[in-house]
Nucleic acid binder design. Structure first.
Length: 640
RNA sequence: CGCGGGGUAGUGCAGAGGUAGCACGUCGGGCUCAUAACCCGAAGGUCGAAGGUUCGAGUCCUUCCCCCGCUACCA
């Protein structure tokens, strides 16, 4: 790595789970990979950038059946959705990997056979607690109340004959791998993994009895052909399928030694322990680097489908451009840490940093050039280079190139933006100090032209530096300055020098960059009201509240809090679940008139569908009281 | 319980032994090229608590408190 050597560079995102909908967290990781890819292309490296979808999960079958379509139809439509999402968000991936392709099947087979030849795969009967939701075996220690903590379902005792991979054999080589201090980042997570290995590794099951979906084990390993490869084991292999491992493509030799996996902290262990071991077994090198980034909360809450706080990046893009979102997520979070995502913060950043600092700077510089230099880039005034204030602005600008490179090597995206913005602020200051409008009045033409040139030249550098993170914005700045070249085609090192901008070019000031948000209209107002906690009467009217009479109540088996209620809402009877079992006896509820939301989207819990929600009040002492009506009133009565 | 992360200005964060910093917000001033913008200045902190080490402690040690995650049955 480094600015002077041109090297191959291979960056990957995880392949995303095909049943998921893309959300801001996926976008975060993918953006980081995109930024790295763009930066390395810019400095002249030979870049390959892979992303894709993980499609061999058992749950595909269920999901397809639920939708009433074929498996293939389902995965094709979902894969399409993921690919389109990234395309729409201007992600510059080179390949989109799908694990249901024949190529991937061949990769998996090839790698497995290598591991098998090495003697690292064996058959063993296994008995364990299997969670259908997770598609994995759980240990006793992981269970909460005998249930899977993620899926709240009791795992089933499964006895299966499976194929195992000798992970335990690789403890020492793995520890050795971790000695390379930049193999696994950030350091905190690296240390955790080292501790984990030191506690001893267990062999892992890598196959499941077939249920008609997934990659069959190679014939030479499983003569019965009744097992498919465990989805996790096959998923990791996508990273080499992308390089044509199955056909010994030259890409494998070219890129593999330069691989960087960006992954979420949740799957860091798979990528830094299991995956390297698999590769070593197959006679391949481990990945060069794995980076585990942090997670977002949304307005302080964990991203969760049940909380309905999943933010679709494409929805967000309708109001804020991809560049704006990218700026925000990379600026706001030190890569590797967790942080919060909120529209309020995003808008604050937009107004302060993008609109007022950068947008306004470009606008004022172009305006002055139009006014004082008839829209032409003025001549580069050599004499001014000796004046301290001008010299400083030049040096800071050209010096950034190296500083930024250092931050890229360490994945410090927020620092890159910090440094660029420091420069933007200094430029604003520079204009204030040199006062071009005074120079004009005093007819100091030479100095005026020097200042104008320096401003616009500095903005050219800013655009250049900004390109990997905000490609559209950078392009627009180039356009408005009047430069015809596309940034991605330029020689970065050369363009990072001062004075590349040729005098005499006509500037092309267009629409202002990052206009104030208010102009965007009513959506905005609504958003603000919600943020401030105020709602419109119409918002309230969306909620259909009714009086209901409880017919029967019973505790839900195996839960502390859930009570199953059969209720009568006048024209129909319904079942709903309420978390009140610790506060009420079932008998005492019978016949009670209570208040329920009847138009709430039904939701299944513990296998029972709850068709509504019971309203109750609770205080900080933990007292809970169900809402009821003050006079007897017919069930089904509307509340408004 | 245990293991991690964290508690620093109104808010969001940085700092890891030597005069408490940044951004936003607030207040005051300047400027007029500009997107009610930009620039300058000020106010604002007993750095979670208590003890200790040290000439000197956000920074090291000990104990404790609180928040968050691992580990969300409040649909």
């Amino acid at each position: 790595m480094g600015l002077n050597k041109k090297e191959p560079f291979y960056v990957t995102t995880p392949i995303y789970y095909i049943n998921d909908e893309p959300h801001i967290g996926h976008f975060y990781c993918t953006t980081a990979a995109d930024v790295l890819a763009r930066y390395h292309r810019l400095i002249g490296d030979d870049v390959f950038f892979a992303t894709g979808t993980d499609e061999n999960s058992q749950k595909v079958v269920e999901a397809a059946r639920e939708k009433g379509i074929g498996n293939k139809e389902f995965i094709d439509s979902m894969a399409d959705k993921w690919r389109k999402t990234w395309e729409d968000l201007n992600i510059s991936f080179d390949i989109f990997i799908r694990t249901t392709t024949e190529e991937h099947r061949q990769s998996v087979e090839k790698l497995l056979i290598k591991c098998h030849e090495k003697g690292d795969i064996y058959k063993k009967e296994y008995e364990g607690l299997y969670c259908m939701g997770c598609e994995r075996f759980l240990t006793e220690a992981e269970l909460v109340d005998k249930k899977c903590p993620d899926h709240k379902a009791e795992p089933v005792l499964v006895r299966e004959e499976n194929y195992f991979f000798k992970l335990s054999k690789y403890e020492k080589p793995l520890l050795k791998l971790f000695e390379k201090d930049d193999f696994a980042l950030p350091v905190s997570r690296r240390n955790e993994m080292i501790e984990f290995i030191k506690q001893g590794l267990q062999d892992i099951s890598i196959s499941r009895l077939t249920k008609g979906w997934g990659i069959p084990l190679p014939l030479s390993i499983d003569p019965n052909q009744d097992q498919v490869v465990y989805v996790w084991f096959d998923a990791l292999i996508n990273y080499i399928t992308a390089l044509g491992y199955y056909k010994d493509d030259e890409k494998m030799a070219r890129y593999w030694d330069h691989s960087i996996h960006l992954v979420g902290k949740d799957i860091f262990r798979f990528h830094t322990i299991m995956w390297p071991a698999m590769l070593m077994s197959a006679g391949l090198k481990p990945p060069r680097q794995v980076f585990g980034h942090g997670f977002f909360t949304i307005n302080g809450e964990k991203i969760s489908k049940t909380l309905k706080n999943v933010i679709d990046p494409l929805e967000l893009k309708k109001k804020y451009s991809a560049d704006i979102i990218k700026y925000f997520i990379l600026k706001e979070i030190p890569f590797g840490k967790d942080s919060d995502f909120s529209i309020k913060r995003l808008e604050e950043r937009y107004t302060g940093d993008l609109s007022h600092d950068l947008g306004n700077l470009l606008n004022r510089a172009l305006n002055m050039i139009e006014k004082y230099s008839s829209g032409m880039i003025p001549d580069h005034n050599k004499k001014s280079d000796q004046v301290l204030i001008h010299k400083e602005i030049r040096n800071e600008g050209t010096g950034l190139l190296k500083v930024i490179d250092g931050h890229y090597q360490r994945f410090e995206f927020s620092q890159i933006l910090d440094r660029i913005w420091k420069y933007i602020n200094n430029l604003n200051k520079y204009i204030d100090q040199t006062k071009p409008w005074v120079l004009k009045k005093e007819k100091k033409e030479d100095e005026l032209m020097a200042v104008l040139y320096n401003c616009i030249e500095a903005l050219r550098l800013i655009a250049l530096y900004l390109y990997p993170i905000m490609p559209d914005t950078a392009g627009q700045i180039f356009d408005q300055i009047g430069i015809k070249d596309k940034i991605e085609t330029l020689n970065y090192l050369k363009e990072g020098q001062w004075g590349r901008l040729k005098p005499g070019i006509k500037t092309r000031k267009e629409k202002v960059l990052f206009p104030p948000l208010e102009e965007k209209g009513e959506d905005d107002m609504e958003e603000k009201k919600i943020e401030s906690g105020l709602i419109e009467i119409d918002d309230f009217k969306k909620v259909d509240l009714r009086v209901a009479r409880i017919l029967e109540a019973e505790r839900v088996e195996g839960t502390d809090k859930l009570m199953k209620l059969n209720i009568d809402i006048g024209n129909e009877k319904r079942t709903l679940l309420a978390g009140i079992a610790q506060h009420y006896e079932p008998e005492s509820l019978q016949g009670k008139k209570v208040i329920v939301i009847v138009n709430l989207k039904p939701r299944k819990m513990r296998g029972i569908e709850s068709q509504g929600m019971l309203l109750a009040a609770s205080d900080t002492d933990g007292t809970l009281s169900v809402l009821t009506v003050e006079k007897d009133i017919a069930e089904g009565s509307k509340i408004s």
